[in-house]
């Protein structure tokens, strides 16, 4: 079957029931999305399918309808995305295992709500768990990214 991942067509030979995460990591070598729980309960595997965040550990690859974007696909020719840069600026990660999923969800939130309130952030990010408890910095980074996007029109 053929997937489009980060703008690139990828042909893979996979059982349609294989989770998208397995196809990305083991077959396509795209290892940004992480395995955490395997049952869509932690968010470490979050990728975008046609702009919507999905838990790739629970989505059978045969059900993927649309372009897949992983953390690797958020950066552009000019470098890191605004959200990625905000993550660095706020020094968000501690262990960093969840951050690929966190950043992908934050990116999707800002696409839909450019100037999110604290409640908007809580509502959007509650499915992305961080066992290091970096939530205050996650919130700060999202607000920083929102301000930067507003300033630059990114």
């Amino acid at each position: 079957m053929r997937l489009t991942v980060n703008g690139n067509p990828i042909d893979i030979d996979a059982d349609p029931d294989m989770p998208l995460l397995w196809a990305l990591r083991d077959l396509a070598g795209i290892t940004g999305p992480k395995f955490g729980c395997g049952i869509a309960a932690c968010g470490a595997c979050t990728v975008l399918v046609d702009g919507t965040p999905v838990r790739s550990c629970a989505l059978p690859v045969g059900m993927v309808e649309g372009d897949v974007v992983t953390i690797e696909g958020l950066a552009g020719a000019d470098g890191l995305s605004v959200v990625q840069q905000a993550w660095l600026d706020e020094q968000v990660p501690q262990c960093g295992y969840c951050q690929a999923g966190q950043i992908v969800s934050a990116h999707a939130l800002l696409e839909e709500i450019p100037d999110p309130t604290d409640d908007d952030i809580d509502n959007a990010m509650a499915g992305n768990l961080c066992r290091c408890g970096t939530y205050p910095r996650i919130r700060a980074a999202i607000k920083r990214a929102a301000a930067e996007k507003a300033r630059t029109g990114a």
């Binding site: 919507t52 999905v54 629970a58 989505l59 939130l109 839909e112 709500i113």
Partner: peptide, 18 residues
């Protein structure tokens, strides 16, 4: 909600995992 729709986890068929 934005960035956390039901469809982020609930796809068109059941997960086979408990």
């Amino acid at each position: 909600n934005a960035a956390l729709r039901c469809a982020s986890c609930h796809f068109s068929s059941n997960s086979s995992k408990l």
